[in-house]
Design a protein around this nucleic acid. Structure first.
Lengths: 115, 115
DNA sequence: TGACAACTTGAAGAAATCTTCATCTGCAGT
DNA sequence: ACTGCAGATGAAGATTTCTTCAAGTTGTCA
């Protein structure tokens, strides 16, 4: 393997590991969008958004197309949407598990489940 | 949204964004394994592996169980395996799509397409 | 109990990533 | 050509994450 695959995978996940980039990808799930719209929905400075879009472009997760005086971004493959769904499933599960534990901890006198 | 969900997602992906942690998760896809075995397959110092395992434990992606004088790790949910598969699909696609352009991936930002 | 093995933990310097600011490019309208 | 707008880029300081080393647990066995 030219570049260790697990290295590439790690890099890939790291590019997803940023709130703004996640939001961008989620917004693009519903179809292409101009930067202007992304900017309206994500609370971040224009130059910061641009930086994050550049990261997504470098890893080929999105494509940018100039249309007149605006730039339109789109997911480069629908697989990305599927990945985000898989992630959401896991997160939901992990969080509800934790949440259940938390509520039990908050209820004094209630016996803790032991596994 | 209760607590920014996209923040939690980003954190989640960041924990996957490390070569050693990825390898660990992939090895655990085939079932639980003692640290000793992980150590034999991953080229990393014991203390470093331990640090990475701690990260995975904190985010609840894996569980650790002491069995005699060894510690056995396991995926906390099979969904993790599915996520890794989805990631592999995307990566494969992105990489084959690029073909010869792969070399340029590292260097400058991809130029904008013009229409 | 003492020695050893298997891991974990804390801490600190090194390295990577983020945010922000100033500057720059490409396009449209005048 | 000049101006303004939409984004992009480079660079620097702040923040986070990594790696490594020394020291600490916990369990086993003699």
């Amino acid at each position: 393997m030219p570049v260790p695959l697990y290295q590439a995978k790690a890099e890939f996940f790291r590019t997803l590991g940023h709130p703004v980039r996640i939001r961008v990808l989620e917004l693009l799930q519903d179809g292409p969008r101009p930067v202007r719209e992304l900017l309206a929905e994500i609370e971040v400075e224009p130059s910061n958004l641009s930086q994050q879009l550049a990261v997504l472009r470098r890893t080929q997760l999105v494509t940018a197309t100039r249309e007149g005086n605006t730039v339109v971004y789109a997911l480069s493959t629908p697989d990305v949407a599927e990945l985000l769904r898989a992630a959401r499933r896991i997160l939901t599960e992990l969080i509800t598990d934790q949440g259940a534990l938390l509520t039990e901890l908050r209820a004094p006198g209630a016996p803790l489940k032991t596994r």
